[in-house]
Nucleic acid binder design. Structure first.
Lengths: 208, 208
DNA sequence: GTGTGTGAAATTCTTCACAGCG
DNA sequence: CGCTGTGAAGAATTTCACACAC
């Protein structure tokens, strides 16, 4: 229980880094190397790993595969959960293709929604597509747990409400919109590209 | 001087939220409302605002426009900086279109790069496009400060190195790759969609 | 009342520093 | 020796709680 959110975040990223090290044929890795790749101090990585395992994992460098398995088990990754994409404009379609090209072990995108019925007909994909007014019923029917939102700002609140009604437990929102409220049991993470750029500007100026 | 990074992040998001409230015709807003929209406690918002202004801004609710101006000035937003996109596949092109459709007041995308010359010829856009081998020289020539990376994983380290050589101060990386090292004066933020999905899975499991 | 400004307390997270093991 | 595991210290953030202003 009580795993710090930063630890969860870093370990989720580590999980992917370890996969790649493994693909590259690297068998062992030190906390210093991992720290570098994440922009973190070695001690932070060791603490994270210790936090998850609760036990000693290595005495001299980590075994890449074993470490990855431990993270997978302890974080509950690899159990395939269902996700959908809402909004199939340029950004939504790009995510969809990206997800098909780099499948994730813990989520599989099984449905897409858009309010433009014409658009639904022109997209060629292997997942099922539905008009936006069916969001609630389809999420319920297919027990979808996560929604990726890429709709225009004005529609964001509405589709997010629908996803919550349908019963998702997580929402990854790329729509730049002020979201009023969501049920407390739903985890919402918003990523607004424009605001992220502003963060760079602010940080640049702040260091004169 | 020492503005906490979380404060900078939240205020950058606030900046955009305030714009939208303003568009919607809302004149005043409370720290509680803003907190809701950001998933933060009211006191956090008030502290952030106080941190920036160093002074009292309002006695009863905030004036939306005035607050936005204050944030803009104190964070140095609105000075137009130059950005580029590296990698014009589906994801990169989507960002490019997105950026053209929702122009940001602090960054303007002025160049795009891709290693596939055919692709450069088929993209219709008003910004200048160049082959990837010109990254260093063009970034230097055009004094580009920020690079948005959307290339396949294996190319990521290489183009990031080139961007650093060219002299960018910030890199927003969407490529799922372990980045070995970058100069300490360059701010790198990586956003890997797959890892972000894993974070949801881990958080969901962690609350049984 | 309603809602801000703000020191002080509480919490969460990071970093240090060093014992211990191969 | 180099590198992990880990308590203890330290720093950075968040939250509380209440005075004050309209």
């Amino acid at each position: 229980m009580g795993l710090p959110l930063p630890t969860i975040t870093r370990c989720s990223y580590l999980f992917d880094i370890l996969r790649q090290l493994s693909v590259n044929g690297q068998e062992y890795v030190s906390s210093a190397e991992l720290g570098n790749m994440l922009g973190q101090k070695p001690a932070t990585i060791r603490k994270d790993i210790h936090f998850l395992s609760g036990d000693s994992v290595a005495v001299h460098k980590y075994d890449v595969k074993a470490l990855r398995n431990m993270i997978q088990e302890k974080l509950g990754l690899g159990i395939e959960r269902r996700a959908c994409i809402v909004g199939l404009g340029k950004l939504g379609s790009a995510f969809l293709e990206h997800a098909m090209a780099f499948p994730n072990e813990s989520y599989r995108i099984i449905a897409g929604f858009d309010s433009n019925v014409n658009r639904l007909e022109t997209i060629r994909t292997s997942i099922e597509l539905f008009p936006a007014h069916q969001i609630v019923e389809k999420i319920r029917e297919k027990a979808i747990e996560l929604a990726i939102i890429a709709v225009p700002p004005l529609q964001a609140q509405d589709v997010i409400d629908k996803c919550c009604n349908g019963g998702v437990s997580g929402i990854l929102n790329f729509s730049p919109a002020p979201i009023r409220t969501i049920p407390s049991h739903v985890v919402l993470k918003s990523f607004d590209i424009s605001s992220e750029l502003n963060i760079f500007a602010a940080r640049a100026q702040h260091s004169e």
